[in-house]
Nucleic acid binder design. Structure first.
Lengths: 196, 196
DNA sequence: AGCTTTATGATACAGTGTGTATCATAAAGT
DNA sequence: ACTTTATGATACACACTGTATCATAAAGCT
């Protein structure tokens, strides 16, 4: 937890770590800081300090805070998509949302940080991009809904629901949330728009 | 449009304006700036300059940019809610969403600014608060969905859909969007959750 | 091993925006 | 006319950012 490793002239920089120890240290530092405060309140100086990395070094890899968060978000979302993707493939949507909710619940601390406050917008954007890329392939041209709109609204609904879930003091169980997501975010996108 | 009124020692400050000319000037200045750039890029100095108001004066009324935007958002949303509220009362949801979309379309330039980028989060929050306040009264205790969650997801869906709409180069017409909002954001919240 | 290239740490620095404090003046209230 | 309040105009202390510089450690290459 105290990752502050003074690298003054100590014997770190093991040759074992192949690609950029710095990289991982920054991601990890941001992750830890997100547990303590909101993304907006975190400064680059804090991140580099906790990562045990020089301040200027940050800008050699990222342009700004947002880019680092986007990197972190993409990393976590890639795992999550393994759960979410089957939803799109329409096999068994309930099983998929259930898997999604279970996954979130297992890592609720992490996802609470990612889905709360200013971080949520960036995470949602990364989520949206990944989901869109995955959906465009098998997009149904005869669909009554533009694929971009459908995915945008579905993702927004999922993110909103999960965010609400993680903020509750007495949160519903995983099964209930899976049903809720299915009802509010997934089914509306797939069903026929017969009435009105 | 050039609202930059030099107030050096000119004969402004008409006694006619009763409550705080400054107040309105700031709101108006932000509104105009939102047409030129995104909310994040706007500085308080710019706002006060365009409003023809002293820089320090800003902080006598608002704590920060966000508070001013929240004020502006609340103002615009109050009008919009006159359209949206009937949706909740479940009389004729299509007529309500149609009214909502027509209203947005009529003021699309304004709402494009409010629903795009960093401003969207604050607007959504204001929208959510107003909608929640309006819904709590007649909340159905036997509902299968917590009222907070239902409204949150509905608002998120509406905002997401409208935002998508206003970003299109060849946007669908008002009727189509009303149907879409009805299908994606309104109906899912009200329907019975029979299956699964 | 010796030379070269690259990644880092450690500062220093300029630029920008924020929020507060101060003071004199104009507007409004009495 | 006297008092109170709102404003304009600065000035300032602060916090962050993003860039530049320089010396050093690590890694790669011959």
């Amino acid at each position: 937890m105290s990752q502050v490793q003074k690298l003054t002239t100590a014997s770190l920089h093991r040759p074992g770590k192949k690609l950029t120890r710095t990289h991982a240290a920054l991601l990890n530092a941001l992750l830890e800081l997100l547990d303590e405060k909101s993304f907006e309140q975190i400064t680059i100086r804090e991140i580099t300090a906790k990562a045990g990395v020089g301040y200027a070094t940050f800008f050699r890899r990222y342009q700004d805070k947002e880019e680092l968060l986007h990197d972190l978000a993409a990393q976590e979302i890639r795992r999550l998509l393994t759960m979410t993707l089957p939803i799109v493939h329409a096999a068994d949507t309930y099983a998929s949302t259930l898997a999604l909710c279970s996954f979130i619940w297992k890592h609720k601390k992490l996802w609470h940080a990612l889905l709360t406050g200013g971080a949520a917008a960036i995470l949602k954007e990364a989520y949206l991009q990944e989901a869109l890329a995955a959906c465009r392939d098998q997009a149904d041209p005869s669909a009554s809904l533009p694929i971009d709109l459908a995915v945008s609204v579905a993702i927004a609904g999922i993110v909103e629901t999960l965010s609400w879930w993680l903020r509750q003091s007495n949160p519903p169980d995983v099964e209930a949330m899976a049903k809720t997501i299915n009802r509010l975010a997934i089914r509306p996108v797939f069903e026929q728009d017969d009435l009105l």
